[in-house]
Write a protein that binds this DNA or RNA. Structure first.
Length: 635
RNA sequence: GCCAAUAUAGCUCAGCUGGUAGAGCAGCAGUUUCGUAAACUGCAGGUCAGGGGUUCGAAUCCCCUUGUUGGCUCCA
């Protein structure tokens, strides 16, 4: 007998060799029904796994990450089986679970059409209905290779050959379909009640553009139809919030054929932008930053010196002036370096914080462009901090606090990642270790949880990334802090220490918004276009009931203008319901409805975009209320 | 850049298997002066992304280019 410690801490005795499923059944048949995967002593395990010794056991359902993965992984096998039934010549590549569903890559002669997708979905429904039991079996390496070769599954052969010599080669089989797979899988195909195939796309084998492009089918599935419907509704909601749609509807920005990836900002989009930049400047002055502006175009020598010519040339726009090569800046740092070098600094001058709202241009692949999220020219709210080595921790802590205060204002939650040395990097391992150590120290000092992203750092140093979470749970990378021991070296930056000698300062690059353009896109989707009053392009709309109130309305508009309130007036010959509807669709925070009553009593009838009618107020009373809301940046 | 889909009026979209474009909203003109999410009537608006081809005839079929969308890759 063996002792099994369950999630709630109870210990139960089971026969040695009992499977996870046996144990689940013994606990309750309900649990066994919803069990999808398990963790045995913290290790992911299949329900079929026999347990041979005392262990701790967590049974995972669809509500757990592991359970979802097993469920979606099984769904991808159902997809593969369906494709094999309909397209026997299709070769199978890989088919994992992903964050929101699953995919499977196939090598087929002709790409799948939307009609094919429908047929495949129908075939999958059949496989579900037929409710095949899913069985696991193992095969010796050589035998597995031979069998896959016979079947013409060249990708599977490659996968097996890449597994370590001593790896257990397992397969999962349902009906006559077996697929190489480490598992875990759920018990039968019948549990996958609701399936939706979402899209087909080309995807390179093993993610490398040197390899053949395969056809990838994406899908989602749920144990219940209602859950699938809910998910599809969420997709619809995300679509409604899409900043590209709202940007058009709210007249914020556009991207024209004449400038792919180069956005135009409309007057209303500029209000948003300017508010963000004003706030940024205000907070950065408070935090002890100076502001600079470096040129957009600088000569080749500079980019060679900074290392960009070697490491970033593919992404740079190049040009010539007279006979010399120039480049449009893809980053602001080299310009900052030059400004640091304009004079000699004492150790007493450090840390020196130089901020720059810098417009950078980067050549992005045409297929990568996406609204304001992925563009070819954008403004980074950049800053470079030059400091003494023993100031690193305090400065990084300072930036972390600044970033935190910004995200709080917008109501974002966030998580933090630490990225380490990439393959193509400048500098020694020792420098990198030192830099990574400093970043870790700062994070730990602030008690911030973080995950490590191996090999994802910039070519000049490791970085801390801030991934913020929007109101519908998606995450976006915005702020980043990058430590850089390289640039000061390359530009021979120095300061004079207490000993009268020259020393090398340390530098960080950091952004809070990341890119103003991207941040505006994220804000638009986060607020679904209903910006808080301080950001709203129009803060209040004055709606006339009849033209007898026009003069009074114009007076109010002037008064608001003097108080820096962004007001619009609507004196058109339309019914009040019509004007309200329009203002509501423009997502203006406040509407003032003004007719004879208001004119007589010097009041306004206030309607809030979110709360509806707020009743009648004295004009000054409303003005104070709005000004306070703007001042406080209320959400 | 690669794979696929796609491009019709300012916006959202019709236009079946080829027979030289249509709606709603927005715009403009007039009527209506009206109290919390759409008043009424009329008018105007498009070289059907651009170029080439097939055809008696192309928005519709084919090819190329460009943009966009979903992915891959890359990234703020």
């Amino acid at each position: 007998m063996i002792n099994i410690t369950l999630k709630d801490g109870t210990i139960k005795e089971f026969e040695k060799g009992s499977s996870v499923l046996d144990i689940a059944k013994a606990i309750s048949s309900g649990l066994a029904r919803v069990a999808m995967a398990a963790e045995v002593d913290g290790q992911l395990a299949d329900l079929r796994k026999p347990i041979l010794q005392d262990s701790s056991l967590h049974i995972n359902t669809f509500d757990d990450k592991n359970g979802k993965e097993a469920f979606w992984h099984t769904s991808s096998h159902i997809l593969a089986q369906a494709v094999k039934r309909l397209f026997p010549e299709a070769k199978l590549a890989i088919g994992p679970a992903i964050d929101n569903g699953f995919y499977y890559d196939f090598d087929v002669k002709d790409p799948f059409t939307p009609e094919d997708l429908e047929r495949i979905e129908e075939e999958m429904a059949k496989i579900v209905k037929e409710d095949y039991k899913i069985e696991r079996f193992e095969m010796p390496r050589q035998e597995a290779i031979e069998q896959m070769e016979r079947a013409g599954e060249i990708y599977k052969v490659e996968l097996i050959k890449d597994l370590p010599e001593d790896a257990v080669i397992s397969f999962y089989k349902q009906d006559d379909f077996a697929d190489l797979c480490a598992g875990p899988h759920i018990l039968s195909t019948g549990k996958v009640k609701a399936i939706k195939l979402l899209s087909v796309a080309g995807a390179y084998w093993r993610g490398s553009e040197k390899n053949k492009m395969l056809q990838r089918i994406y899908g989602v599935s749920y144990p219940k139809k209602s859950q699938l419907d809910e998910y599809l509704e969420r997709l619809e909601e995300a679509k409604k919030r899409d900043h590209r749609k709202l940007g058009k509807d709210l007249d914020l920005f556009s991207i024209l054929e004449e400038g792919p990836g180069f956005p135009f900002f409309h007057p209303k989009g500029m209000v948003l932008r300017n508010e963000l930049e004003n706030y940024w400047r205000q907070e950065h002055v408070k935090a002890g930053y100076q502001e600079i502006k470096s040129p957009i175009m600088l000569n080749k020598d500079l980019w060679v010196r900074s290392g960009h010519w070697d490491h970033y040339k593919e992404n740079m726009y190049l040009s010539k002036i007279d006979e010399s090569d120039f480049a449009i800046k893809p980053m602001n740092c080299p310009g900052s370096m030059l400004l640091y070098k304009r004079r000699i600094y004492s150790y007493r001058d450090l840390p020196l914080r130089m901020g720059e709202l810098g417009l950078v241009h980067r050549h992005e692949l045409s297929g990568a462009l996406h609204g304001l999220m992925r563009v070819r020219s954008f403004t980074q709210d950049d800053a470079h901090i030059f400091m003494l080595p023993d100031q690193i921790k305090d400065e990084i802590v300072g930036v972390i606090e600044l970033v935190d205060s910004f995200y709080d204002v917008f109501g974002f939650k966030y998580h933090v990642e630490l990225s380490t040395k990439p393959e193509e990097a400048m500098g020694s391992d020792e420098d990198w270790d030192r830099a990574i150590g400093a970043l870790k120290e700062a994070l730990e000092h602030k008690g911030i949880d973080y995950t490590i992203n191996e090999g994802d750092g910039a070519f000049y140093g490791p970085k801390i990334d801030f991934h913020l979470e929007d109101s519908i749970g998606r995450t976006w990378q915005c702020g980043t802090i990058q430590l850089d021991f390289q640039m000061p070296e390359r530009f021979d930056l120095t300061y004079i220490g207490p000993d009268g000698e020259k020393h090398r300062p340390v530098m960080v690059h950091r952004v809070v918004f990341g890119s103003i353009e991207r941040f505006i896109a994220i804000l638009t989707e986060h607020y679904a276009g209903a910006f808080p009053a301080w950001l709203a392009p129009v803060q209040v709309k004055l709606l006339a009931i009849t033209d007898r109130s026009n003069d009074y309305i114009r007076q109010i508009a002037d008064l608001f203008k003097d108080s820096n309130i962004r007001a619009e007036i609507d004196l058109r010959n339309e019914k009040i319901g019509f004007k309200i509807r329009e203002a509501q669709m423009e997502k203006v925070p406040y509407m003032l409805i003004i007719g004879d009553k208001e004119v007589e009593t010097g009041t306004v009838s206030v309607r809030s975009r979110s709360k509806g009618s707020l009743g009648t107020m004295k004009l000054d009373e409303f003005k104070e209320l709005l000004l306070k809301e703007i001042e406080n940046k209320d959400l």
